[in-house]
């Protein structure tokens, strides 16, 4: 069996790869009782004294490397910062590893590094180490970033602690990143105004935490989109989540293009959004706080957690439908 694009698309095929090939063959996967690899959370933790170091790594390949709303550099910094932030951690530092193909345009490289600089300043996170390789074996630039953050011991926010009755909040319009990439890659971006939402959201989350809002679970809905994130949270928490179609924030243009192409915006990647399970009593206040921040201005409460069913269910105008864990490309099922 050979690796396919489906293995990297987020969703079931990728999950099976991780579980059956990677997790199955690694034996020492956690340190000092901290959150380890087997949790498949956004980051891992290493308890030291009264704190926990939060640690994550991300490999970035994207085509095209420059796209409306961002580029691979901004994506690398934001992705790693966000993986730390959704653990409730304060991001402290990043490493930067570049694998550059022979013949790569130097001006493009400079453009990318400048973008990295701008994004790291925006996130207020230092880049403190790195590596550079030139290779004739890759087609386009690959950036690998690792990041560390810090959180009080036992206070890391997991994606497996959704509680019954929690409000499910998403911080803004969904589907923008994945669709911007798709249209750009295929050469249709000139006809639309859709831009990637790629952005570091650590400051947004920090505001919520500073206000004492009780976030029981949190996740950034990247590959596989909101559908993947919610299904993971529901499954790991052993609870059901009901969401309401008319509450999900989505721009008219994203909705329109998805409607024409036959794509489900719930399964499309976001790179500057967070989904939270918030204690019900804190939900309205949380929403206010999010909306005060530019990155959270379109935040919505989209549903709630419930014991009445398993998995994720969406209420639509024509009834309730189960939201699947995405499996990569959609497969027709209507006869």
């Amino acid at each position: 069996m050979k690796i396919t694009r489906m293995h990297g698309a987020g969703g079931k095929v990728m999950q099976e790869l991780i579980k059956d090939v990677i997790l199955k063959n690694l034996e020492i996967t956690s340190v000092n009782g901290g959150i380890g690899l087997e949790s498949l959370d956004d980051s891992a933790t290493i308890p030291i004294g009264d704190k926990e170091i939060v640690f994550t790594v991300d490999g970035h390949t994207v085509k095209p490397i420059f796209f409306p709303g961002g580029d691979i550099g901004r994506l690398a910094v934001s992705g790693t910062v966000n993986d730390l932030a959704v653990m409730g951690a304060k991001p402290l530092a990043l490493s930067l590893s570049l694998i550059i193909p022979e013949g790569f345009n130097l001006e493009d490289l400079e453009k990318i590094v400048k973008s990295i600089n701008e994004t790291s300043k925006e996130a207020e996170v230092a880049i403190i180490t790195g590596d550079t390789k030139v290779s004739d074996g890759v087609d386009d630039i690959i950036i690998s970033t690792a990041g560390i953050g810090i959180v009080d011991r036992g206070k890391a926010i997991r994606d497996c602690n959704v509680q019954e009755g929690d409000a499910i909040i998403v911080s803004g319009n969904i589907g923008e990143h994945g669709l911007a990439i798709l249209l750009s890659r295929e050469g249709f971006d000139f006809e639309t105004n859709i831009k990637s939402d790629v952005a570091p959201i650590n400051k947004l989350i920090e505001r919520v935490l500073e206000e004492g809002i009780q976030i029981n679970a949190m996740k950034d809905p990247t590959r596989g989109g909101l559908a993947d994130a919610l299904n993971e949270m529901a499954e790991k928490s052993n609870i059901g989540i009901t969401i309401f179609e008319d509450k999900i924030p989505i721009s008219d243009e994203v909705q329109s293009i998805c409607d024409i192409l036959g794509l489900d915006p719930l399964t499309i990647a976001n790179e500057g959004k967070v989904v939270m399970a918030v204690k019900k009593e804190d939900a309205e206040r949380c929403l206010e706080i999010l909306r005060e921040h530019p990155l959270g201005k379109n935040a919505e409460i989209i549903g709630y957690a419930t014991k009445e069913h398993k998995g994720v269910i969406i209420e639509t105008i024509v009834g309730r439908r189960i939201v699947d864990m995405p499996i990569g490309d959609p497969i027709p099922r209507v006869c």
Partner: peptide, 10 residues
């Protein structure tokens, strides 16, 4: 080719 997946059925 089913243009748009299930949309081509609809």
């Amino acid at each position: 080719y089913q243009l748009g997946g299930d949309l081509a059925t609809k």
